[in-house]
Amino acid sequence: MKAYFTKLLIYLCISYTSISLTAAVYNLVNGNEPGSANTLVMFAFCLISSIVLSFYELLPDVSPLAMIIIQYLVACALCAVLLLILSLIEPISPKGWFEYYRSFTIPYIIWAGIYYFSVYLDTRKKNDLLKEIQKKEKE
C-alpha cells in the first residue's frame, strides 16, 4: 500500500510539474501572463534543492544534523547565485531577497524537523524489532 501511494505521489508530482512548466513556457513565449517567469524560477530553485539534497548519502562520516545544515547552506548559496544572475536581467529589491530566503528556509526547517522526529521513531521501531529477534533466539 505504501509503495502504491509513493508511486501515485511521484506520478502526481511529475504530471503537475510537466503541465505547470509547459504552461509557463507557453505563456512566456506568447506574453500572456507576467507570473510565468516566477514559475520557472521556482522550478529552478526546486531543481537546485533536489540535487543538493540527493547528495545526502555522501560523506557518511558526517553526522546527519551537520549534513542537513551543510546542504541548506549549499542550496542557499546556489540559489543566491541564480538570483544574482537573474538580477542582471531584472533588478531584485532587498525585500525580494528576504522573501526568497524566508520561503526557502521555513519549509526546509519543517522538513528537517520531520526528518529528525522520524529518526527517533524509526530507532524506537528498530529497538522493538531487535528485542523480538533476541527473544525468539533465546526461546
Binding site: P60, S63, P64, L65, Y116, V119, T123, N127, L130, Q134
Partner: peptide, 30 residues
C-alpha cells in the same frame, strides 16, 4: 545483533548500537 542492548539516536541524528559492555558503535547511514 544478539548482543546489542539498545539502539540510541544522538542529538546529531547519528544512531548508535549500545552493547552490554558499555561500548557503542555508530550505525552509518549508508
Amino acid at each position: 545483533v544478539f548482543k546489542i542492548r539498545t539502539l540510541k539516536p544522538a542529538f546529531n541524528m547519528k544512531v548508535y548500537a549500545c552493547f552490554d559492555n558499555g561500548e557503542k558503535i555508530c550505525v552509518n547511514r549508508s
